[in-house]
């Protein structure tokens, strides 16, 4: 509780420190605008037009439904990866044999291009939710798994000894000695896993389903509707930035105050 109050207390200052980032995004948009003036509306619609399309979109029920569908797939996929990646990673980390064994398998999972997984998933599950969710899990699970594994593997033996010398009870050992260390590894892994999930879900939808934002993007492409395509991209980037910078980053800062 105290922890969340602290996050809320520091939030305005954190938000205010974002002005520099806003400035550089606006400069980027200025370049985009120059691109529009050089290449014309068909190739690259102006930022203002895109934002107007976006505004109209966010007021249409249809698009909101599609966003809902995509959000559902991404959250289920990411949730599964989060659960299994963390638990299995922790277990693997505690046993030297398990971690030795899992490494090459993780390398295979990471090394396989997501597009190949989509093709396989389409054969296995057909065109639908399962294909998308499966691809998301396959792409973000290894990232979280490795994070959890690293976290447990790198636990500090000296601190364990210190805990023993003061006869910490087991729950204190876990909460005060192991958990903060593991968390400092696993949390960034969650963040990058989430980013991965969000990107993959769009790609999988674009190829394998007829609904969701990815499918909308495919339709916009086939109709050469660049403003809609860019507006969709803006939604994707905007929502990812919102989750990462407005929700996760403040938590991360508070959790990792002791680090930097």
């Amino acid at each position: 509780m105290k922890f969340f109050l602290k996050i809320l207390k520091d939030f305005p200052a954190y938000l205010w420190s974002g002005w520099g980032a806003v400035a550089s995004i606006l400069l980027f948009i200025a370049f985009w605008d120059v691109g529009n003036q050089i290449y014309g509306n068909l190739v690259l619609p102006s930022p203002l037009e895109t934002f107007k399309t976006l505004y109209a979109m966010l007021h249409s029920k249809d698009i909101l439904e599609q966003i809902d569908i995509t959000l559902y797939r991404a959250s289920v996929g990411f949730g599964l990866s989060l659960l299994f990646g963390s638990v299995l990673g922790l277990i693997a980390g505690f046993f030297a044999t398990a971690s030795m064994m899992s490494r090459p398998i993780v390398t295979i999972l990471v090394g396989m291009p997501p597009i190949a997984w989509i093709v396989l998933a389409m054969i296995w599950f057909g065109m639908g939710d399962e294909t998308v969710i499966f691809t998301v899990v396959v792409a973000s699970f290894p990232i979280i798994f490795v994070g959890a594994l690293q976290g447990t593997r790198t636990l500090d033996g000296e601190l364990k000894e210190m805990a023993d010398s003061f006869a910490f009870p087991w729950h204190m050992k876990f909460i005060d000695v192991y958990f903060p260390h593991i968390f400092s590894y696993i949390f960034p892994a969650w963040v990058s896993g989430l980013g991965m999930a969000w990107k993959i879900v769009i790609m999988a939808e674009l190829l394998a389903t007829s609904d969701g934002m990815g499918a909308e993007l495919a339709i916009a492409r086939s109709q050469l509707d660049t403003p809609t395509a860019l507006a969709l991209v803006t939604i994707m980037i905007g929502s990812l930035m919102f989750i990462e910078y407005i929700i996760l980053e403040p938590i991360k800062r508070e959790v990792e105050l002791w680090r930097v």
Binding site: E158, L159, M162, S165, D176, P180, S184, W258
Partner: peptide
């Protein structure tokens, strides 16, 4: 009761 003081402090970095 016993206690231990280590050479390098061994403080919990997150506390």
């Amino acid at each position: 009761t016993t206690a231990f003081a280590f050479q390098e402090g061994r403080l919990l970095p997150w506390k």
